[in-house]
């Protein structure tokens, strides 16, 4: 339970960073932290104390296997989600650089040509 709570703390830190900071680079860092918190949460779903690798050998009874093996699916999901996160991060940083070229600032409150 304490692990889930720590993940929540990480998530909230990310949300704070996203909302409270004006600098767009810091906002991106906040998004990355949120992403990592979710990834950790998914990993924790599949976690099992003293688990074994989910490979079924011929001489292994099915019930014991089901009781002891960790869930492999969340790990696959997290890998995919990390790759997606990398793609989004690259795009964010690229747009951030182009914004800096145009506006000469990283401050979100000065990047305000569009009105609501």
């Amino acid at each position: 339970m304490i692990l889930y709570f720590l993940t929540l703390v990480l998530f909230v830190m990310g949300v704070y960073c996203l909302i409270a900071k004006k600098n767009i680079v810091k906002k991106i860092i906040g998004l990355v932290i949120i992403d990592y918190a979710i990834n950790l949460f998914i990993i924790l779903i599949g976690y099992r104390r003293d688990g074994v690798a989910p490979i079924l050998f011929k001489d292994m009874p099915m019930e014991e296997f089901a009781r002891h093996s960790v869930d492999p699916l969340p790990q696959a999901l997290v890998l995919t989600s990390i790759v997606i996160g990398l793609g989004v991060l690259a795009l964010q940083v690229a747009i951030c650089l182009r914004l800096y070229e145009k506006y000469k600032t990283f401050n979100m409150s000065e990047i305000n040509r569009l009105k609501g």
């Binding site: 996203l18 979710i38 999901l77 989004v88 964010q92 951030c96 182009r98 990047i111």
Partner: peptide, 30 residues
């Protein structure tokens, strides 16, 4: 240009937050 990049960045931030919420929901359902 200035406006396009700003709009894209806003969309990107909000869209990423939405994706995060969806992923969180998927993890819960799983």
């Amino acid at each position: 240009e200035h406006e396009e990049l700003e709009a894209s960045f806003k969309y990107l931030i909000l869209g990423t937050v939405a994706s995060t919420a969806i992923l969180f929901g998927i993890a819960f359902l799983y």
